[in-house]
Nucleic acid binder design. Structure first.
Lengths: 236, 236
DNA sequence: AAGTGGTCTAGACCACTTG
DNA sequence: AAGTGGTCTAGACCACTTG
């Protein structure tokens, strides 16, 4: 893949931020400085800064300059995103720790959500996602064993369930429920947080053409994660 | 100049789509055609098409052209609902208690969100929403005093700010951020909850044609309120 | 006054899909 | 071969913030 000039500049800036050389609120080079440094026109340097601003990584003020945005993770409600991609897009390092990967007997609640009889089998995984080695999301996932028979053969330290499932059973539909909860104790241990900390919990059900693929419970510390969305209302 | 040139072109295209003159999958004029028609450079016409593409309204293919995107259904999570309607829909009784209605000087965070200088004036309201006389949501709202000069003359025990604003400054756009937080103490008093209870907090910014209308902070006890959404992914 | 970002121009070359 | 979008240039004027 041949990189564009503005892509090279974006990567340069992301590296500075990721390595900590440019911390939060640090001033980043102006359009003119980047243009000179990379030997490109101002419009090209501008595009790199502009796209990082749209991604929420930089903040710009006319007359004042461009600065590294205050970090707060954000994921879109409009899309089912791969958390690894989201973290990369922020210029951070994603890693995952597979805690559990096995077959379980599902209880009533999960059975209803999966659309299978209570007491039947399902695959189950527990994965802890880390951003720059800091726990950020605990993922519990029940997967339809009929639709995805090879689920247990994966290594989710290397690939996220989302990436794997996207490949074998492309998503056609999803539903969400979002709640604020207090983290259960076993979760506090994984996420390395205090017991009284509020967490954002998303229950997500996903469908492929063949039916319900998985039921996922995502729990994130309230101070480390937030969900965002932007909609444009059709004017009448 | 009030409107930018690319803004005028965007509006032109949006009008064609909304009026049905350009239906789904219709071909829209090329960059060159728009440039000639509006007497602007190709880069300016391009920007209008590019921004509408980023908003998901248009779809572009190199060599082929630009087309009106296929409409995809939106999550109900992302609709701006009137809480009074939501409660009525559950067959319950909604009431509201107006706690504060005045003009305030906005701090930095709100100023940025409202798009006005820090230290300028804004209207402000605090309203407690009750469902069957049980507190369910605490609404703090900053309202652009230039766009809605009559805000302070309302009685929000009788009508919700949402209803009033919908009438005087119809919504065109909104963004959301959702977080799990611990309720601040003054909020616990209003919501009649314990201090360590997790709350779902939605920060919402709404736009009308003229600009940012209001910034709203909605806080609900985690055990009393839930957000739900369902999306259908466009199949390829 | 100097620097910054926001908008805009009038060109250019390229990769790609279409008739 | 003609048209389209994707990238890029080297300028310009403006509004705005800062020292």
């Amino acid at each position: 893949m041949v990189l564009t000039k503005f892509g090279i500049i974006k990567q340069f800036i992301l590296n500075k931020i990721e390595s900590g050389i440019w911390p939060q609120n640090a001033k980043v080079p102006s359009e003119n400085e980047l243009a000179e440094q990379f030997n490109v026109s101002r419009m090209t340097a501008r595009r790199a800064l502009q796209e990082l601003t749209e991604q929420g990584i930089l903040v710009r003020t006319q007359g004042a300059g461009t600065f590294v945005a205050t970090f707060k993770s954000q994921s879109s409600l409009l899309e089912i995103n791969n958390i690894a991609d989201e973290i990369s897009a922020r210029g951070h390092h994603h890693s995952a720790k597979q805690l559990i990967l096995n077959a379980v007997t599902v209880d009533d609640e999960i059975a209803i959500l999966l659309g299978c009889p209570s007491g039947s089998q399902s695959f189950y995984s527990e994965i802890l996602h880390l951003e720059n080695d800091i726990p950020i999301q605990f993922e519990q996932r029940y997967v339809n064993d009929k639709l995805v028979p090879t689920y247990l053969a994966q290594n989710f330290n290397e690939i996220t369930p989302h990436e794997f499932l996207s490949a074998v059973a492309p998503l056609t539909e999803a539903s969400h429920e979002i709640e604020a909860v207090l983290a259960p104790v076993e979760l506090c241990r994984h996420l390395a947080i205090e017991t009284h900390q509020p967490c954002l919990q998303v229950k997500r059900r996903t469908w492929a053409k063949q039916g319900v693929v998985s039921v996922t419970i995502l729990t994130s510390p309230g101070n480390k994660h937030r969900l965002g969305g932007h909609i444009v209302v059709s004017t009448n």
